[in-house]
Each structure stands twice: as C-alpha cells, then as structure tokens.
C-alpha cells in the first residue's frame, strides 16, 4: 500500500476542563479569560490519534498545522512526540480572533503551500468557541470531498472509508483521496506520551517553522475578525448543594430517602 500524507489541524486553547472558578468574562474588552494551562483542543487530539494510527498501518507522513496570533510550540511539540513528523506554526498578528472562514482560508493557504497531501484531518469543533465550521469550510475552499464526524477511518486503494456518526447509528462512506475529514471523539483519545518521550522531544534541537500570513499568500483583507458584538457571563447554574454526611451506610440510607421522596 502506498504511503499517505496527512495534515492535521490542531488548535491551542485553554484547558476546557478548567473549573468554573478559573473562568471569567471581561465584558468591556469582550474577552473570555481562562486562568488555566493551554492544551491542544481535545477533538484535534482525536484527529491526531487517528492520523498516527493510519501512519502506523500504511506508513506515511503527518504534518501538524496550528494557527494563532502566537502559538506555544511547547504545547504543540506534544504532537511530534505522539508521532507527527512535522509541526508548522502559522503565526501572525492578523491571525488573532479570526472568524471561521478566515481561519479556514489561512489554513488552506498553508495546505496549498505544502502541496502534497492525501488526507486533511481536523477535530469536529474546537473546545473554546465550539463553532464546528473550520474543517468543513476548509474542505469547500480546497474543493475536497468532505466527511464529518468520523469515528473510524480506513484506507482502501487510494480511497478513504469512514464510519461517520449519524443520529441512528453510523454510515459507512467512501471518498477518493485527497479528502477532508472532521473527527469525533469516538476514535479514541490521543495515546499517552511518556515523560521520557516528551523529554527527548523537548531536548530535540529541531526548530519549528513558523509561517506568517504573507508566507501563506493570504492578504489582510481576507482575514476577518469574529464579529463579537457583546460578551457576558452565563446565568449562574449554581444550586445550594446539601451534603449528605455519615458513614457510607448512613449516607446510602439518606440518599435512598431522597430517591423515595422524588418518586
């Protein structure tokens, strides 16, 4: 089987599992402030996992693209430790707070610059803005077959066969490569990268290329900001939690009473 070239788009976001107390909203500056470490958006990690699996099966090369005003290569280097062959940061002051279409346009620029590819994988949506648009728009711009919500991907003679989630189960679909696929979490979580592996990667002298908008041939006019007109905190979801105390047995007894009362 011939080797395949995979491009994975991975976004750096604040930890989406951060507790509520770490998140605040600056309504004036229209910014969400999250006091939490940066991570790779979870669905993008899923996309990388499936890419690494495919590379293991049929061989090939994985390039990871990450776009932002400034991208932390320490966060993204994890992708190399996980099995990606190349990490390219797409960094430009004009990449700040882009709307989905502009993000896809910039990514398309980078992908065209790379030129040679069989599969483009993205997460189904990013864990910060939850828009779920960039992947499909990217596919449209590049005029590729688009498959969304993949839960399993296999390669068959120049084509890709995908199990995609649908409301009643799944649909097996097939498309000629190159193709764009958005990946859902059913493919499984990104393999764990041991500290020793990470250490090697961190110490690796490999420099990480960074491409600007100009490098990608994307004009400033093509880069539009998300049109945020207002930003506010959500209504308080908090309830007054009544703690049930005692030994496990006593707690169980009281909890059973709670259920009884709710019957």
């Amino acid at each position: 089987m011939t080797e395949i070239r995979i491009i994975v788009c991975a976004k750096e976001i604040p930890d989406p599992e951060a507790p509520l107390s770490d998140v605040s909203v600056d309504a004036e500056k229209m910014e969400v402030i999250v006091d939490a470490p940066q991570v790779i958006s979870p669905f993008d990690e899923n996309a990388l996992e499936v890419a690494v699996q495919l590379k293991e099966e049929v061989g090939g090369k994985i390039s990871v693209l990450s776009l932002g005003k400034k991208v932390s290569d320490t966060v993204l280097r994890k992708t190399l430790a996980a099995g990606a062959d190349e990490l390219i940061l797409l960094e430009d002051d004009n990449f700040d707070k882009l709307d989905s279409h502009s993000t896809a346009a910039a990514l398309a620029g980078a992908i065209q610059k790379i030129g040679d590819y069989d599969l483009i994988l993205t997460g189904r949506q990013a864990g910060d803005w939850d828009s779920g648009q960039v992947g499909l728009i990217l596919g449209e711009i590049l005029e590729l077959p688009c498959i969304s919500l993949a839960r399993e991907i296999t390669i068959e003679d120049g084509s890709v066969v995908v199990k995609k989630s649908i409301p009643i189960g799944y649909e097996r679909v097939k498309a000629k490569m190159p193709a764009l696929i958005t990946v859902s979490n059913e493919v499984g979580e990104l393999r764990y990268i041991s500290r020793t592996k990470m250490l090697k990667m961190m110490r690796g002298a490999r420099s990480i290329p960074s491409w600007s908008a100009e490098d990608l041939g994307v004009t400033e006019e093509a880069l539009q900001k998300m049109g945020i007109a207002a930003l506010s905190s959500p209504p308080d979801m908090g309830r007054d939690c009544q703690l049930i105390e005692g030994t496990p047995d006593e707690q169980a007894e009281k909890l059973a009473e709670v259920f009884k009362a709710l019957r």
Partner: peptide, 18 residues
C-alpha cells in the same frame, strides 16, 4: 497551573507506574 486536568490524570498514572 502548569498542566491541564487531563495531563495531571496522565501524570498521576505515569508517576505510579514509574
């Protein structure tokens, strides 16, 4: 603050094994 929640879960497991 240096690691995400998921990374701490993973670090815990790796620490124990290691």
């Amino acid at each position: 603050r240096m690691f995400s929640r998921k990374e701490w879960r993973q670090l815990h497991d790796e620490f124990y094994d290691s």
